[in-house]
Design a protein around this nucleic acid. Structure first.
Length: 282
DNA sequence: CTCGCCCTGGCC
DNA sequence: GGCCAGGGCGAG
């Protein structure tokens, strides 16, 4: 599940391969839910363009092009951006044995001779790619709250302070705070010892500050581990991240709490699963 | 704010 | 053979 640390890991690895390069060719899979801009149009828009920057806001990557347009990328649940030099990450044995190209690669960029090709693979197609015309305001970006890596207490108070929903749901709401997903939300709430069901607006200033610090801390841990490889996520060179081994509570239902050894609980909050410690989190 | 939907592999 | 995961979005 690519969240901010995974997307930032991808950005750092891919940016040097893209920035300053000119797109020589674009290969796409068939039109699908994945393409917010139809593949034929996307290809026509990209060929001949030079990539000037690869930015990130929350879980979105934004490639800027030399004509002022941009390409928005989202990895969804199972998206993988990787270099063609790396063996197709997490390729199932069955797919590898099948003849022909990997059916889950929806987009491939030829960046000229000597440059590795960059591929976007996504088994479930919950990822997204969209071309943004020069000067256009992109509603998906405009909706986002402040990036969670640039979180300070004041910004966090503004993002969370008046929300009446469960704090867990607010952490996941990208319009409040951009970049935190289910894994890092559970981790941060555990570190801050806050119950995921607490009403966000009812948090005391001390608790809010502790949670903001915990969000920063778990994102930093995830980033320095090179992301978490649960499900399909891999770094662009095909290697696994390390945070899945270091995680505290996420996906550890019934396992002992790292702090008090009581079994961790899993509940559903706002339609999303939450794993937490009934004893430590108040 | 909550719900259902998009998608597909994996697991009961 | 059916259900679930889950990010994000549109509908209610």
């Amino acid at each position: 599940m690519p969240e901010l640390p995974e997307v930032e890991t991808v950005r750092r690895a891919i940016a040097p391969l893209l920035v300053g390069r000119t797109v020589r060719g674009v290969y796409t899979g068939p039109p699908s839910y994945f393409f917010l801009t139809p593949p034929a149009e996307l290809a026509a828009r990209l060929v001949g363009r030079t990539i000037t920057d690869l930015g990130r806001h929350g879980k979105y990557l934004i490639a800027r092009l030399d004509d002022g347009s941009a390409v928005l990328l989202h990895l969804g649940m199972t998206g993988q951006l990787f270099t063609a030099g790396a063996e197709s990450p997490r390729l199932r044995t069955r797919d590898r044995a099948a003849a022909g190209p990997d059916p889950h690669v929806h987009l491939e960029l030829d960046l000229g001779e000597g440059a590795p090709r960059v591929r976007f693979r996504d088994v479930r197609k919950l990822g997204k790619v969209k071309w943004i015309p020069p000067g256009a305001r992109e509603p998906r970006l405009a909706r986002l709250g402040p990036d969670a890596l640039e979180l300070d207490d004041e910004r966090f108070a503004r993002a969370v302070g008046r929300r009446r929903g469960a704090i867990k749901s607010v952490l996941l709401d990208q319009s409040a705070l951009a970049g935190v997903g289910n894994l890092y939300a559970d981790e941060a709430l555990f570190l801050a010892r806050i119950r995921p069901t607490r009403r966000a607006s009812a948090l005391r200033p001390r608790e809010r500050a502790a949670l903001a610090a915990a969000v920063r801390e778990v994102l930093a841990r995830g980033l320095s581990a090179g992301g978490a490889s649960l499900d399909d996520w891999v770094a662009p060179d095909g290697s696994d991240g390390g945070y899945q081994h270091a995680r505290l509570v996420y996906g550890r239902e019934r396992q002992p709490c790292p702090a008090c050894q009581a079994p961790l609980t899993r509940t559903v909050i706002g339609g999303r699963s939450a794993t937490w410690c009934r004893r430590c989190q108040r």
